[in-house]
Design a protein around this nucleic acid. Structure first.
Lengths: 347, 347
DNA sequence: TTGAAAGCGTTACCAA
DNA sequence: TTGGTAACGCTTTCAA
């Protein structure tokens, strides 16, 4: 049981290499490489022999060397800027697992607002990630976005960019905005309001325009249009207080659930309004919290699983690579009616 | 303006290499390498010249090649298993930013319960990450934990492992549990209860034991001890209903805030209890939601920033490397009294 | 199917 | 301070 050399305790430095393993069992280094390459042309018994010995000496192929040699990293960069809104952790969680399923690792780039974005993102290029997934590009300007994705496979999730250079996967925000308007109308509401998150983002514009357009089509009145300034609970509260101050609003569509949560709390706790008896509230996303009994938010559910699946699919089949023409996938969501919306009651 | 060769459109394939750049401007490849290495011995003017030309042809050092050559990746693996509890996204966000600050990238390993953990984690070893940060090791057995951290720098956050092999950074859960008990006692409560998350985890055991011990010391009665089975909102609800069914409890300490949130909602909405008039509730962590007016949870705040800072420090100064003796850092938290706890009222 | 050898793009050591 | 030149550990032709 002399494991003094290879197994070793905590101080272990150098892992064993393919060359060493090969010499150890008297085969070529190429053979070792093939043994670990699915589908390589190698005799089944030789492969088994090599794998057996490899396990014994705890040999693992060095992924770095492999990357260099194949000029492929099997790493995708995930660019995020906001983990406070629970929608994003949920998305990232599913995404990273789905990528792992197909042998891809996730390198997380959590960029902070303000300080030199290109500096923060330079690693995306240096590390030669195979693909970049940009989540919530709200913070990135078009130029920065182009810079970071330039020359490599890229997918934008939850944002659509007009240029036609980048592949995008997003929920059908238009249908969502319309569905909320329809829902309000069916409940008998006539004076409605919209609360924006970040006003200039594509998600916001799509939801907002669809909602407002449909509101007009249905002959309802847009009693107010507020801007939270960010997608956050606090912004939702502030906006709701404005809505309440303005008064005479039957129903409010918040650009997403976290805003809506803040709004609902402000209506109930600070404005003394009952939800939905005095005012109806709808959100967007269907984050976990929206389903909590206390909130029970009526919302438009984004098809998270499908978005993840489509995104990973695009990366796998290379359809989001720079040569290809950008594909834009709109996935349909679903109106989830819960308890923050109710029939209009004259007051 | 003939940029037809290097700048190039979307189809760009091969980035320019150091060797090519060197030849282009008539210096050695070593010089190029030095120009990009802070503190390398190279004349200032030569460096500038090289950097200028590099910028022109858009040369960036290839990080992969650098990793291979230096046998150092500048990547740390972050092992997570739960992004539903907002505490973790908040931690990951701060962590990844702090790492980025010091030039380290975060490779995310989001492991799913159940299916072959070692398989999911094999990439940690193959990618030769410089260090591993294990967050919420609740899901990892001691053996798996040892396996994934073996032979490399490693830090456990929010969990302390007894073996003495691994460096750990955690909040002083003992002080936290005591503080909650003291707080309850000061408010005049005498019959209290504890709701566990995952019963066997170190965080849970520490909070629980400290709380229960202190409860006894102060002459209060432990009127109940419940197990949520997981750290989740739903588990908190279930536990709260059990507490309510049992009855005759003045105050409940939930093992963390997300449990407490579920508990509070269940008390109020389902059990018909007022919080804190009928029953006081305390949590742990101080996640963002705990500060929301609607919840306003009395809790014990984990020093997130300090935890991150200490962790990154350990990785930078190498004090968590396999050779070193493991250091365990206990950081002190802070009791945050909000509105879910109140004085005992006889009933 | 197998082995030998030429890269992959850096870094680091050694002379100059 | 500079340039030449071995590594680094793997993948991938090309012959055998």
């Amino acid at each position: 049981m002399s494991d003094s050399e290879h197994a070793g305790g905590k101080g272990r430095r150098k892992p064993i290499t393919a060359r060493e393993l090969a010499r150890l069992i008297g085969v070529s280094q190429s053979a070792v490489s093939r043994a670990f390459t699915p589908g390589a042309s190698i005799a089944a018994e030789l492969r088994e022999k090599i794998l057996r010995h490899a396990a014994e000496v705890d040999y693992h192929p060095n992924a770095i060397a492999s990357m260099l040699s194949r000029s492929r990293s099997n790493i995708v960069g995930i660019v995020v800027s906001d983990m406070q809104n629970p929608f994003y952790p949920a998305l990232i969680e599913k995404l990273s697992r789905a990528l792992q399923q197909v042998g891809l690792q996730s390198l997380l780039f959590n960029i902070a607002k303000g300080s030199n974005l290109e500096h923060q993102l330079s690693a995306v290029r240096r590390y030669n990630v195979d693909a970049v997934i940009v989540i919530s590009a709200t913070i990135l300007s078009g130029a920065t976005l182009r810079w970071v994705t330039e020359g490599r496979a890229a997918v934008l999730i939850n944002r659509v960019v007009d240029g036609g250079e980048l592949s995008c996967v997003a929920c059908d925000n238009i249908a969502g905005g319309r569905a909320i308007a329809d829902h309000f109308h069916q409940l008998g509401h006539r004076r409605v309001a919209y609360v924006a998150g970040l006003a200039h983002t594509s998600t916001n514009l799509e939801r907002q325009n669809a909602f407002i357009t449909r509101v007009a089509e249905l002959g309802m009145t847009l009693g107010g249009h507020f801007d939270g300034g960010e997608y956050s609970y606090a912004a939702g509260r502030r906006a709701a207080l404005e809505v309440a101050a303005k008064g005479n609003i039957d129903a409010v569509f918040f650009a997403n659930d976290i805003l809506a949560a803040g709004g609902i709390d402000a209506f109930r706790d600070e404005a003394g309004l009952r939800v939905p008896e005095d005012i109806s509230v709808a959100g967007f996303d269907d984050i976990a919290m929206a389903g909590w009994p206390r909130y029970s938010i009526t919302t438009f559910r984004q098809p998270l699983d499908e978005m993840v699946q489509v995104t990973v699919g695009m990366i796998e089949d290379g359809s989001c690579e720079p040569g290809q023409s950008a594909t834009i996938r709109r996935l349909s969501g679903e109106l989830i009616v819960r308890k923050t919306t109710g029939p209009f009651v004259s007051r």
